[in-house]
Design a binder for these strands. Structure first.
Lengths: 372, 372
DNA sequence: CCGGTTCGCCGAACCGGTTCGACTTCTCCG
DNA sequence: CGGAGAAGTCGAACCGGTTCGGCGAACCGG
């Protein structure tokens, strides 16, 4: 069991001939060239202790000359934080909606302003390894979790790992969860009231796909709830359409609606991707917007403006939501004990040109009769 | 100058009561509980040296029990690589096209399969700090650079930092650069030949926005080149339209085209985002697709299928491109001396329903006369 | 029974930063 | 002139991994 230690220095590696040759550009090299110690360079850069003006100037000159930037991994290891946040997005297979894309872009933008990097992780589907790496290998300081389901395994996983996070969307009832969401229920309710005010008595809700809603997708459920509430309050006849997230499904869905329920004169939608199809179906049935048929809903502003005629709709404020979520997250990273906050955003409905007074009773029935 | 060393052990920090309490979950803790040294745990995990079956089993049991995962920053520091790649995207202000989005999603997907993480960095615009962090702080092992311009400062920056990277798109002539691109010139040439074969004599190219093309945007320039070549080869009359990347611009652009050049009966497009507008403008002018007007071009397959009628077009194979780019990048990370490769992808043109034989001469002129 | 190999494990150096205690020097004040 | 206090710097420990040289024991053939 005895070991011979007399030769220990013989085997000591020389500092100057490390394992990797590397670029030799590290804080030690800067220190050497500036004739100070490594800690002094660190303090000159961070300002956490005073460094004399002369010394600082010398150090900065060396740094500028060599274009030195501290190594992110080493810094993360020492500081215990990565200056990176994780953005968990729905898997690419389920095509992202424009609203979601706006949101991703905004998060990256806002993060860049706060000098944070963003690590992207698709989750759901089969590749949860990426998500697992994020939470358990300390790759990020916090996480923004998109598209939270009513029951969501990832939420409990993040909690177990004590990883600060903010959700986009919110599960059923969970006071401790910190989230930002769009008030789909309130907005759709508002839209339907607007349509009722214009005299529409038979309205439809264009919801997301059957699978999505069945899997507990919050916006789908809440849009439905808001719709039902408003329909009941105003004594309307309401009809819900579950429609795939693409133009073709939209076209089929609306064509079917016009055929089977010609009395419907107005639509509230939360399904942006279906809109081009909605337009085609109405055009083919010779229903003019907004003269014969009104459309309103919750839509990314770009789509609302691109539609012809421009949509009267609640524009989802993706950039604001991203900024809010990031701000909440940064708070929770600083102090994990920060009480959970819930931000339910309720953007105003912008009046554009897709809604008008309901056509006089009977006229709607007459038009599509050519089709039947 | 003399220092008192007799007390050095008095001030030595105890290992068990470190600066941060932390979760105490590190390789040392695993080693302690399994009754082995840290290096043995490391080898048991990496398999880089043999570890006896019994020891390995004991270690793995402890690891599973505690749910241990090695710290990414520490590993990155020690290994000299981050297992992360950077994806440099155009700034969010310039809205991403569907093709680009498909590409981003595919990159994330492919990276996840290779157990790599993806760090997102918007560049261009004012926030180049993010890009700078990426290249100079060793945050990533390699970079995929989207939307390379004919002259691109980021390319030289990456080169100076000796950071392996692969471009999507390619600058004018640069043999050392490694890239993957779509053969816009060849594809548009092919499209125009197809239209010419159908008897069209007056064709237009729907290019991207004037600003984008002016700023040296490769696809714009190459689409133009391919268009001009084919027009010349077939003795056609060609017209180029520079059109903003949105439906409204598309509508205005095509409306103007139909008014001023009613003899044009076919369009080749590289501007997906304008397509809904193209459709509206043609419908308003009572030009039926494909009876009165043919459309072809380079379009993400989803858009091609969503269009009515479905577009005869070259579907950009975003997923394949992403996989190729990633594979190239991984090669260059492994061995930076790998010779640069250039992959010019030329997907087949899928025949759908938006192209047909040119209308007989004269009929095209007659239709829009009602408008004038 | 002995020298050489192989196997399995350990201790220490190292990656490149940050942070803390302590030392030297300089200044100010009684 | 001496002691207190502040300013500026340094050395070393530390973050949590990986990797390398080396050692003891078991195993081998002659």
């Amino acid at each position: 069991m005895m070991r011979l230690w007399s030769n220990r220095f013989v085997y000591r590696r020389m500092t100057t001939t490390g394992r990797r040759a590397g670029s030799g550009m590290n804080i030690g090299e800067i220190a050497r060239r500036a004739g100070v110690s490594r800690s002094t360079v660190s303090y000159a850069l961070s300002g956490k202790r005073q460094v004399s003006a002369g010394t600082r100037k010398r150090i900065m000159e060396v740094i500028d000359e060599l274009g030195y930037r501290p190594n992110a991994s080493a810094r993360a290891l020492a500081e215990g934080r990565t200056r990176t946040i994780g953005l968990v997005i729905p898997p690419a297979s389920n095509r992202l909606t424009h609203m979601q894309l706006d949101f991703v872009a905004s998060v990256v933008e806002v993060a860049a302003q706060a000098d944070l990097d963003v690590l992207l992780s698709p989750s759901g589907g089969d590749h949860d390894r990426s998500f697992e790496r994020l939470v358990s290998e300390s790759r990020v300081d916090g996480v923004i979790l998109m598209e939270i389901r009513i029951e969501d395994a990832r939420v409990s996983r993040l909690r177990k790992a004590r990883m600060p996070f903010v959700g986009i969307g919110h599960p059923s009832q969970d006071e401790q969860l910190c989230w930002v969401d769009v008030d789909y229920a309130g907005l759709i309710d508002h839209c339907v009231h607007h349509l009722a005010d214009l005299g529409h008595r038979h309205v439809a809700l264009l919801n997301r796909s059957p699978e999505l809603v069945a899997s507990g997708y919050g916006p789908g459920h809440r849009a439905r709830a808001g719709f039902m509430q408003a329909v009941e309050e105003r004594g309307l006849t309401g009809l819900e359409l579950l429609c795939g997230d693409d133009a073709r499904s939209g076209q089929e869905c609306i064509a079917e609606l016009l055929r089977s329920h010609p009395e419907v004169t107005a639509l509230a939608t939360v399904n942006e991707a279906a809109l081009p199809g909605v337009q085609r179906a109405l055009a083919e049935a010779d229903r003019h917007i907004p003269r014969d048929f009104s459309i309103s809903g919750v839509v990314a502003d770009q789509w609302a403006e691109d539609f012809r005629p421009a949509l009267t709709a609640a524009d989802v404020p993706a950039a604001t939501m991203a900024a809010q979520a990031m701000s909440l997250l940064i708070d929770r990273i600083k102090d994990p004990a920060t009480p959970a906050q819930h931000l339910l955003m309720s953007p105003p409905i912008t009046l554009r040109s897709s809604t008008a007074a309901a056509p006089p009773p009977g006229s709607a029935d007459a038009t599509p009769s050519a089709d039947g």
